[in-house]
Amino acid sequence: MEWNRREFLKIASATTAVTAFGGLGFDLRPAYAEGQAAKLKFTKQSTSVCCYCSVGCGLICSTDKDGKGRVVNIEGDPDHPINEGALCPKGASHYQLGNNDRRIQKVLYRAPYSENWEEKSWDWALDRIARKVKEARDGSFVTKDAKGRVVNRCEGIASVGSAAMDNEECWIYQAMLRAMGLSYVEHQARI
């Protein structure tokens, strides 16, 4: 697999460079080829799948080997039988999700009636959320319905989400919500 991909990249760099850089008046092919080679030499490659629509296009992520272990490039996986290396604009912009200063990097908290966010630690936030969950659940738990039938429901908490999670995350999320007795469990598939 690995060898095939490298072969592919070699061929691709030779052929696409002609069309991509032709007409500039000087030859960029050697620089382009060097760039491609550097990507393989100085990065570790791993495969992924696009996070946007449901076509499921394969990606190759290149991670900086010597620096801070950051992704330096993401492109289509030529071995993947669905996209065969191609990506749409969204797929091709993956890199900007990983390296983006607009990412929220701290736990944020907004107190009642406050006009601002405050930064908090994970421990502080999860402790407080757990306490809030327990209060809401214990205060709204219904053992029997109006007809006297056993229902074991927590009626004071609702959840939406998420198709943005992996299967394994979705499964434990539903397990947690159902163990708590939630009935209002919904997500993107409904809308």
Binding site: L108, S114, A125, D166
Partner: peptide
């Protein structure tokens, strides 16, 4: 905001290529 009582917790999560697991496409 001064009239909104709701306490809000914003928990920052990883992007798809910062974690491991599976997803299922339309097919």
């Amino acid at each position: 905001p001064k009239k909104v009582k709701t306490e809000v917790f914003f928990l920052p999560c990883a992007v798809s290529f910062e974690k491991e697991g599976s997803i299922s496409n339309s097919g």
